[in-house]
Amino acid sequence: MADLVLENVQKAFGDNPVIRGIDLTISQGDMVCLIGASGSGKSTLLRCMNLLEPIDDGRILLDGDDISEPGKDPQPVRQRIGMVFQSYNLFPHMTALDNAILAPRRITGKSKSVLRPEIEEMFARFGLADRMLHYPDQLSGGQQQRVAIIRALAMRPEIMLFDEITSALDPELVGEVLDVLRDLRAQGMTMVLATHEMGFARELADKVCFLDQGRILEDGTPEQIFESPQEERTKAFLSRVL
């Protein structure tokens, strides 16, 4: 069970406020899509949820525990909240399989041979069984991004964060990565996506949040946001991207 609640989260880089008071509740099994222009704070918000960026003010609660308390060890939290990046960030000196096994091996202390069957199963499930022993530079962008998702899933996280994971892909490779997300959605994974794939957000999201200048300007069901947006800026954004 994992609920993630953000209360008045604020984050600035130097004098430049990037997140300006965001409240957001992500319940178990939800799929929340963050949309908005680049620079609106989507990526930073995801990085704050994973504690890669410490927040300046406000609170982030995971099942009621304040995980954003300054000085708290972020490591156990990150093991429960997986993250996938736009530029894959696979470890180039390891095979796909080793990329996925490293974290579980170090954190559970189990040996590679014990962990391997479970990880192999994930590779098979996402159609990468024959790519497991390849190095990242021998894989296509879509394959690399699927390996990155497997790597995050290998920690058995309760929540997954996806930071524009299809933005760096060639258009014909986007579909295979979105299929993985559909699969996860069907299994009830709790997910937060920063995305430019409006069609995908519309099809699968429980909630869509439109971010503008570090605030959630408008949120609601996909129908509300895409069919009848209330705010002028939401309308302007949607008319540009749709």
Binding site: L52, P76, R78, M83, N89, F91, L102, R106
Partner: peptide
């Protein structure tokens, strides 16, 4: 830095990120 961030985001310690990544 993205390599370090990727390692940390998996829940690895800073020492492990240095040693293995």
């Amino acid at each position: 830095d993205s390599q370090r961030n990727a390692a940390l985001s998996l829940g690895l310690s800073g020492g492990d990120a240095m040693r293995f990544v």
